[in-house]
Design a protein around this nucleic acid. Structure first.
Length: 524
RNA sequence: GCUGGCGUGGCGCAAUUGGUAGCGCAGCUGUCUUGUAAACAGCAGGUUAGGGGUUCGAGUCCCCUCGCCAGCUCCA
């Protein structure tokens, strides 16, 4: 049967196929394991569910994006079942599909070891071979609470089901409407395991032809640092052994292109322990590469109408009090260098004590250049550019090669313009940024629009709205995909960021464009 | 920062139940001149991240610090 076919279960079709008035998706699509679910009037459902006359039904192929998601989510269930079989005291968190795979979180007394992981894998294989059926069973909230009384995290999801969001993964478990429980049934229809879940799933565990557990780590319950840390088991699942193998080969190939490895092997840069984490040294070969890139960037900025400025690496804290950064980012700045106060012999003050900071960003300094004298509207737009060396005390666990560091050089520019000029500047700036990135060989990226976090921001609603609209418009003109990042903005401005992926699959924020309507006020 | 794993010559790795730290590549010195996966011979290179402890004896066991890796949280 063609997987693209749409079956309309009218009387004619039923007659033609010799199927009953009410039947199931499995009856329609058979059990050859290439169709994992069905879309009924646009809603994806388990193949076990009944279909009836007049419904438009479409098969979901195991190889389609949605089919893979269902496959991987089903594999997560099997992982959880295997874990609870081997560790009866493990409490269930959530188990959603992710890119190329899935994970499932557990609260266990002892963290999993690699040996545990392979034992879990073996148990999963047994479950897959048993072809346990996934049975969907709608339940009331009370029934769900009753049946899952031993699962505190599931109970929490049930209690919060109205507020579940995709962000914390809870929506894949409970959703907004009626709760459903999925039972894994053995051949004799006895219940081997059950879980609270929205579904859908593959019809039975035999539909998971190729999977592997990849790593174990920890993660905060519902993504909140204040919560309990759970053990997260990661896995990957594919429609065939060949595809699983190909995926593993891709990962090996990617590892060879890890920039940290290349940087060492090609003698480009290093991070000596004596200097400190996240502080890079560019060797001669890395230095010449860097110079070529910098020279090119300078040339392009010159051509695009930027003026070059230079600002110091350290400043009195007063600057960041004015800008507001100390209030929001003091924890992520290197601690201040304190200069003691000094007094004359008669006790009068000779010099006041003061704190100097290494700058974590250049914005306030450029603002000071702007206001160093009176400005005329005739000067606008005024575009200032600098290779600004900045330092941020990034948390120890996040430092990564050259992509997340504690000391870096930003190619940083600030454009001062009138409200009327803003839209035009944004559009040409975004184009400029994208052109430059593509000249450096980066072409696989998308845009993200980070909007206001009401709990972590300053300024009026009106100015935020105006800035956000202008960015949205500029993004639309670029024609690139735009992903929303609600609440992700810095305290003073919304931003568009260019997101790119590195060789080993990590996503990194590249250039950002922010419309800042706060700093101009703060710097008068 | 959190959880887990790890830390042996520049790089990649070995070292049986705690019992003299080895190998390959790179480097250096010769020989060879041979067409792009790496010729031959020889030499040198390590207070096993650092500190403390247990022990007759610690690369191996315990504690602390530093650093690295994976994931989480964060990312002006």
């Amino acid at each position: 049967m063609s997987q693209q076919s749409i079956i309309i279960a009218t009387a004619d079709v039923r007659e033609e196929r010799g199927i009953e008035e009410t039947t199931t998706g499995l009856d329609l699509f058979g059990d050859d394991r290439t169709v994992v679910a069905m879309r009924v009037d646009g809603e994806t459902r388990d193949l076990h569910r009944a279909v009836s006359a007049g419904e438009e039904i479409e098969p979901v192929s195991i190889s389609s994006a949605e089919g893979l998601t269902i496959l991987r989510h089903s594999a997560a269930h099997v992982a959880a079942q295997a874990v609870q079989h081997l560790h009866s005291d493990a409490k269930l968190g959530i188990g959603p599909p992710i890119v190329d795979g899935f994970y499932y979180d557990f609260d266990v007394p002892e963290p999993f070891t690699p040996a545990d992981l392979s034992a879990i894998e073996k148990q999963m294989l047994r479950i897959v071979k048993e072809r346990q059926r996934f049975r969907r069973r709608p339940v009331s909230d009370d029934e769900a609470r009753q049946e899952l009384s031993g699962e505190p995290y599931k109970l929490e999801l049930i209690a919060d089901k109205g507020t579940a969001t995709a962000d914390d993964g809870a929506s894949t478990e409970v959703g907004a409407g009626q709760l459903t429980i999925y039972d894994n049934l053995r051949r004799d229809d006895s219940v081997a395991w059950k879980d609270l879940c929205r579904g859908p799933h593959v019809p039975h565990t035999g539909y998971i032809p190729a999977f592997a557990l990849t790593r174990v780590s920890s993660a905060y319950w519902r993504g909140d640092q204040a919560n309990q840390q759970l053990q997260r088991v990661y896995g990957t699942a594919w429609p065939s052994r060949e595809e699983l193998k190909a995926h593993q080969v891709r990962l090996e190939e990617a590892a060879k292109r890890d920039h940290r490895k290349l940087g060492r092997e090609l003698d480009l840069f290093s991070f000596p322990d004596e200097i400190g984490s996240g502080l890079s040294m560019f060797h001669p070969k890395g230095g010449i590469l860097r110079k070529v890139m910098e020279d090119y960037s300078r040339q392009r900025h010159l051509e695009a109408g930027y003026e070059f400025v230079y600002t110091p690496h350290i400043t009195k804290g007063e600057l960041f009090d004015i800008s507001g950064h100390l209030g929001f980012y003091a924890d992520a700045m290197f601690p201040p260098m304190h200069v003691d106060e000094e007094r004359h012999p008669d006790g009068t003050l000779k010099r006041q004590g003061v704190d100097y900071y290494i700058k974590p960003m250049n914005c306030p300094m450029h603002c000071l250049i702007f206001r160093s004298r009176g400005r005329s509207y005739r000067e606008l737009p005024l575009r200032m550019f600098e290779f600004g060396g900045v330092y941020r005390y990034e948390k120890s666990g996040v430092v990564h090669g050259l992509t997340r560091v504690r000391g870096m050089t930003q190619d940083d520019a600030h454009i001062y313009c009138t409200a009327e000029q803003m839209q035009g500047e944004l559009i040409s700036l975004l184009q400029f940024v994208l052109d430059l990135l593509s000249d450096y060989g980066l072409d696989d990226f998308y845009l993200e629009l980070s909007t206001r976090d009401p709990d972590k921001s300053i300024g009026s609603d009106e100015s935020w709205e105006q800035a956000t609209d202008a960015l949205r418009e500029a993004a639309a003109v670029s024609g690139l995909d735009l992903v929303l990042d609600p609440g992700g903005a810095a305290f003073y401005a919304p931003k568009i960021s260019v997101q790119a992926r590195d060789a080993i699959g990590h996503r990194w924020q590249m250039s950002t464009i922010q419309v800042d309507m706060m700093l101009p006020d703060r710097f008068d």
